[in-house]
């Protein structure tokens, strides 16, 4: 499958956006400049960005608590995203959602989810809508290895399979459910194998290879779009940083983390783009500079935005 130059360029840009965005967020959290918590996807940018980018614009995603790369891949206004993390009224959720709930339903982002496995049912329902309305749209349901052990995983895959719903279940297996290694929370290595229980295809993809992720999801989307039912894709990846801001990484070694840093998905894509002469060194540099500029601009936008007025506290409980 040939990927257009424009798509590759955008992919590289969005992966950089995710990285720089999260580094900035991490900096803010470390200095107590924002409250609450956040779950960073540093190291998982190919898995999130390339998967979302493989969809058509009108397709939908259900994201996770570690969803910054996923929603940036879908295409998002960085200003409003940064504003949401800083709790500002200009944010996607008017400052009421924060990092774990970035959503833009009209644009096809059904929301990041604070509950592990919480998006499974929502994705299935969204796919039901597409089937009934014959919209031709598909739903990409992100979840992690931890969520593959939730009951909702089983119920959702089973129902989607029985009803042949247009949904891609996309498991980002980053090898740890918070601190618990996958070897201690399931007796198999490949979550994709679980697809056989539901009579649907299962695939494994190298989640640090943006090109492979893009191609796998794109092919998968075409399959489910034809009404053949759901598929399960397992993307093998790794988060370089802790589960959340309070994580001291006591459950894994520095060596392991360093090993995975060598498999940096952004460097890997850069190498590919240069080797295949898709982009020149100066073009790459221009993208990277632009991203840094855009993230700084998003911080400025967020800082200059107002906090939500106290009167908004009781608004929007009911529609």
């Amino acid at each position: 499958m040939k990927i257009e130059k424009g798509t590759l360029l955008e992919m590289y840009k969005r992966m950089n956006e995710a990285r720089v965005f999260e580094e900035k967020v991490s900096y803010f959290f470390a200095r107590g400049m924002v409250h609450g918590t956040t779950h960073l996807s540093i190291g998982e940018e190919a898995s999130g960005v390339a998967a979302s980018m493989a969809l058509n614009e009108e397709d939908l995603i259900a994201a996770t608590h570690r969803g910054h790369s996923q929603v940036i891949g879908k295409g998002i206004d960085l200003n409003r995203m940064m504003a949401e993390l800083l709790g500002k009224v200009t944010g996607y959720c008017k400052g009421k959602g924060g990092s774990m709930h970035i959503a833009d339903v009209d644009a096809g982002n059904l929301g990041a989810n604070g509950v592990v496995g919480g998006g499974h049912g929502i994705a299935v329902g969204a796919a039901l809508t597409q089937q009934i309305k014959k919209s031709g749209r598909v739903v990409l349901c992100f979840f992690g290895d931890g969520a593959a052990n939730e009951g909702s995983f089983h119920e959702a895959l089973n129902l989607a399979s029985v009803w042949k719903l247009p949904v891609i279940f996309y498991c980002e297996n980053n090898l740890y459910g918070m601190s618990t290694p996958i070897s201690k929370h399931m007796n198999i290595e490949d979550i994709a194998k679980r697809s056989s229980s539901y009579g649907i295809p299962g695939y494994i993809v190298d989640g640090n290879d943006a090109i492979a992720v893009y191609q796998r999801v794109k092919e998968g989307a075409e399959y489910v779009r034809k009404g053949k039912g759901p598929i399960l894709i397992e993307s093998k990846t790794y988060r370089w940083v802790g589960h959340s801001k309070s994580d001291a990484n006591v459950y894994r070694t520095k060596e392991e983390i360093e090993e995975w840093k060598k498999k940096c998905p952004i460097k890997r894509l850069k190498k590919y783009l240069l080797e295949k002469k898709v982009l020149r060194e100066d073009e790459i540099e221009a993208i990277e500079k632009k991203v840094i500029y855009d993230i700084e601009a998003s911080v400025e936008f967020a800082n200059n935005s107002e906090n939500p007025p106290i009167e908004s506290l009781l608004e929007d409980v009911y529609g």
Binding site: L110, H120, G121, A126, I132, S152, A156, N158
Partner: peptide, 25 residues
């Protein structure tokens, strides 16, 4: 199509209803 028997899966019945509602049904 519109009156659908589900498996015995209350979590996804409520979850799917939520997802369907958010997207226009």
């Amino acid at each position: 199509e519109r009156v659908r028997d589900t498996p015995i899966s209350e979590a996804v019945i409520a979850g799917a209803a939520t997802g369907a509602a958010v997207t226009g049904l």
